[in-house]
Structures are given as C-alpha cells and as structure tokens.
Nucleic acid binder design. Sequence first.
DNA 1: GTCTATACTCTGATAGAC
DNA 2: GTCTATCAGAGTATAGAC
Lengths: 206, 206
Amino acid sequence: MSPTARPRSRIQQRNRELILDAALEVFSLQGFRGATLDQIAEVAGLSKPNLLYYFPSKEEVHTALLTGLLDTWLDPLREMDAQGEPLAEIMGYVRRKLDLARDFPRESRLFANEILQGAPRMREAIEGDLRRLVDEKARVLTAWMEEGRIARVDPVHLVFSIWALTQHYADFDVQVRAVLGPGHDPFAEAGGFLETLFTRLLAPQG
Amino acid sequence: MSPTARPRSRIQQRNRELILDAALEVFSLQGFRGATLDQIAEVAGLSKPNLLYYFPSKEEVHTALLTGLLDTWLDPLREMDAQGEPLAEIMGYVRRKLDLARDFPRESRLFANEILQGAPRMREAIEGDLRRLVDEKARVLTAWMEEGRIARVDPVHLVFSIWALTQHYADFDVQVRAVLGPGHDPFAEAGGFLETLFTRLLAPQG
DNA sequence: GTCTATACTCTGATAGAC
DNA sequence: GTCTATCAGAGTATAGAC
C-alpha cells in the first residue's frame, strides 16, 4: 500500500535525506570542488564509506541536488498568469520569489555557486528550459505593456531585476545583515521595498 | 642611457602580476578551496615551485587579491556627493558600479564567492568600513528625501538594490547571456534599463 | 547496512641542483 | 630565479569483516 514510487526502507529513505541535506549545506557554502565528502559525512552524522554506500560518488550527490532545483526555482515564474491582473501577477511573482529566497537560502546559494562557476553542470537546462520559460513570459509582459496595463520596460531585463533583487537577500545574506546591523528583518524590509520599487517602475504612465 | 636601477625588481613585479592575474581568474571561478596552485601556476605560465617563490602560500595569494578589492568596490559609492544634484548623483553611482561590473567581472565574482561562503576572510572589513560608508551615504539619501528632491524609499535597501542589479550582470553573466541569446550587449541594455528603473523609483512624487 | 583499513590520486609546500 | 624531485597530508573511492 505504500505510495512511494521507488520502494526503499525507511532507513534508506532517511539516510538519503540526511546526506542530501548535509550535502546542500556544504556544497552551498563551498562549491563543488571546495566541498569534501568528509564534511558532508560529518554533517550527516554518517561515516564516509557509509555515505558512499548510498551514493556512488561525490558527483552523484551533487547531481541529485541539482536535479529538480531549477524546476523549483522557476515554479514561481510559471505561475504568473497571462489572464490575471498584470501588476498583481508581477507582484505575486516577486513575493513568491522572495519567499523562496527566505525559506531556501541554501538552494539559492547552490544555484549561485553553479552559475558563478560558469554553470558547468547546468548549462543545458539554462539554455533550454530556462530560456524558453523566460521568452514565453516576456511575451506576456510585452502584451501587457502594449495594452497599456503596465509601463513599458525591457521585459527580459525586468525578469533579471526580479531575480537579482530577490536572490541578493539569500546569497549576500551575510553582507546584508552586517550592513543593517542587529534588530532588522532583512526579508520583511525587502518585501516592502520591492513592492514600492516595482509599483513605481510599472505603474501605467499618465 | 639610464641603466636599469633594479632589474630583478622588474622581473619580480611582472611575475607577481602574472600570478595575481592568474589567481584572480581561478579563484573567481572556483572559490578559495576549489582553486589549486597547479591551476594558477599553469594559467600564469610558471611552475608551482616558482609561484611559491613569489608568494609563501596559497593563502597569501588570496589575501593579496582581497586586499584593496573592497576599496575598489566601494569607490563609486564614495564619490556620491551630498552637494550634487540628487538624481544625477545616484544615477552616476549606478553608472560607475555597472561599468565596474562590466570591466572587472572577475573581481566581482571573487567578491561574490567570498560573501557566499560567509565572508570568512572579509567579515571585519564588511562590518567595519563597508557598514560605515553605507550608513554615511544613507544619511545623505535620507536628507535628499526629506528635502523632497527624490522620492522616499528605504535608503539602505536602495543601496542594496544598486549592488544587486549591477553585480548580477557580472556574477550571473553566463545565465544572462544564455537567456538573451546571441546578438545582445547585456551591459549596454542593462544601462538603459537601470536608468529607467531608478528614474521612476526616485522621481519626486507629485 | 555499517564499520575499519587501505589503495591511490591530488595538493600544498619544501629541498636542493643549476 | 627557475627547475626537478619529493614529502606529508588530504581527498575520493574500494575491499572486506561483521
């Protein structure tokens, strides 16, 4: 009666999750080459050979993390609906992307590391799925602009700006907190700031 | 007729520059731990022992790169003049920061790597010099807002947004070019987009 | 499934000839 | 100043006992 597609014992399932969580922690901070199986095994609370019982190699652990990451990362953009109210749809996207950065900062840094290094393990996905989705949504944005429902601006760079502004709070978290000092909630403040920014940028021009 | 005063010094100077340039190339793509002296030596066109003749350790090469990097990175903000015309001063800052990202993408990625990893070798500078400068300029921005010369917005997050939007084009260059496709000049387009963005964000409200 | 022991490669750094 | 040779330690991965 188990609904799991690939039957694994609870122990296997649990240890795989422990390893992937530990790997996310280490890879996101050190990059692929900078991370070591020793570090990952220690964070996971397993021995190194035991880790290699679950994954055949370091590369495979990394691949398991990247697989699906891009999808998760792009879901908020997919949800932007051409039939909805333009400004509300865009602000909803910004909101979802910022929430993702707040709730999954390690995933954001893993992605940032991969791109910084020239996307050696994600090039294909970026030139394929990512590009197609952005092109599609850029057409939606362009249509809204031509209908006069939002102000005109380069639609692709608009998407870039949403990525840059939201991911900055996850990837540069250390810097953001150091500059703000204690007693601040960076993501809460960012939410208000970004709402102001995109409202003023996109408000239909008189 | 002028005899070379210190010929050895000139060779040293040249090789040090070769090494630092190669190290910038490798560290900016691989991070500190991911980079190897072999890679750096090969890019520099020297042997590994010869590299270590000029710098006593891998750590010293990295430190030599980071020293002064923050200053270079903050100079454009330092130049923002409280006595100038507010919008022109801010746009000048955006322009200078974007030019820096375009002309020194490796330095930008080196910095990004350092922050992503939790700023283990720059924490002090970030909590000190960086924070002080941002606080100072935030007061300038706040004064301009209170005088009604630019629209109100959180001044520190305004600075964050300038960093995020300009550095994105250097750090995520691979992704930007993959999405735009051939026949684009990302930095030229970004210049126009950012001018529009900050003009609309900061135009004094009616 | 998990462990100890270990093979083998890579990496940072040093010694010493020229 | 630059090279070859080399060391010690770290790192990935495997063998095999339990």
